Computed example of a mutant assay.
Amino acid sequence: MSARLDGSRMLVALVVIAATLAGSATAIETLQQPSGDEVLDSVEQRYESAETITTEATVTVSNGSESATATVEMAATADNRSRTIISHDGETYRAGTNGTVAWAVGPNRSVAYPVDSLANGEAFDDTVAPDERLSDDAEDRFSEQGLPSMNASNVSATVVGTPSIDGTDTYEVELTHPEVDGTTTLWVSQDDSRVVRSEATDGTNSTVVSVQSTAFNVSIHDSTFDPPTDRVSLTTVDSYEEFDAAQTATDLELPSPDATFAEATVTVRQGETVVGQQYDSDGRNVTVISTTATDRFDRLTENATTETIDGQTVAVQTVADRAVVAWTDDGVTTAVVVEGSTDRALAIAGEL
């Protein structure tokens, strides 16, 4: 009986030792596991040190029971050239820059701008119809309320697991910020610090990026980043601080209201011209648009009322808290956009 008791004690001792060793191994593995910040640092170094990167991924955006999926292909170089192809619901969108020209091509529209114009904030503003823009105060509210100022040092990164994603051992890193609802999770390859999956969610909406492939330092032909010449015509954008200079730069006869001239931008794309003039009238902004691209401003007459000024029928409506008066004469559309009432817009339009 004593021998059996000793055997039982030995068995218990072996179990305890085995458990202790297993616990020690787990502790050692935990000590060897990098922190969340260390994983993020390795990702940043991996991507920033690459001369070229190509990536293919599937992006799924969900909102409750609704979801949409797109495939994304990206190529980029260390000298700021890039190209992105997005395919969704049978349509394909392409955008990129070769360092000199930034371009985008979609099913119904294409555009290209000199990179310098984008850097100076000159592009796009005067090719967007007034009803597609935010008012200045709306933009301010969006900037102040919709995009909180965030300090990157306040982001907390925590390794919460080490799962295998499609055969790749990863670190699962959860990111949180005290000023942002929800979380972002990254799955990072343990071998080479590639991001293989990411998910951002606020509890209701989520965006999941599943990366099928990523290649570093591969050869990419220069033509990859050039705009497709058969569909894209370069858009030129020039700004002027004097009315006479703007008038000299275009064949359009520019109208001028009784107000203080501020600046003008002349945009030419595929033979169409858009001139946007900015004026100050008693401390309030007045925008006068003149364009040969009349079809792009057709929506200004949709759901609008009509008035007659000096025998000219004009469309009148309020868009984004601004009054708009627009008319087309001899192939040129003119629009007056003011802060204030439609009566004020009509009065200024009458001066033109």
Rank of each mutant, 00 (worst) to 15 (best):
R197L: 01
S223R: 14
V195T: 03
D226A: 12
N205I: 05
P228S: 09
V195S: 04
H221L: 15
T229W: 07
T214K: 00
F225T: 08
G203D: 06
E199Y: 02
F216I: 05
E199D: 05
T224K: 13
R197A: 01
F216P: 11
T204W: 11
R194D: 13
N205H: 14
T201H: 08
Q212N: 15
S210C: 04
S210N: 15
I220D: 06
P228K: 09
F216G: 07
V208L: 12
T229C: 03
H221V: 15
D222R: 11
S193V: 09
S210Y: 13
F225N: 12
V208D: 02
V209Q: 12
S219K: 14
S219V: 13
V209P: 05
V195M: 11
H221E: 15
P227N: 06
D222I: 04
A200P: 03
T224P: 10
S193G: 01
E199V: 03
D202M: 00
V195D: 02
T229S: 15
V211S: 02
V209M: 14
N205S: 13
D202G: 04
S213N: 11
T201L: 08
S210M: 09
V208F: 05
H221D: 15
V208E: 12
T204I: 10
V208H: 06
S198F: 07
I220Y: 04
I220F: 06
T204S: 13
I220M: 10
P228H: 04
V209H: 06
T229Q: 15
T229F: 05
H221P: 14
F216Y: 14
P228M: 04
S213V: 00
Q212V: 02
V211R: 00
V196P: 01
S193R: 00
N205P: 03
A200M: 11
T214Y: 02
F216Q: 10
N217C: 10
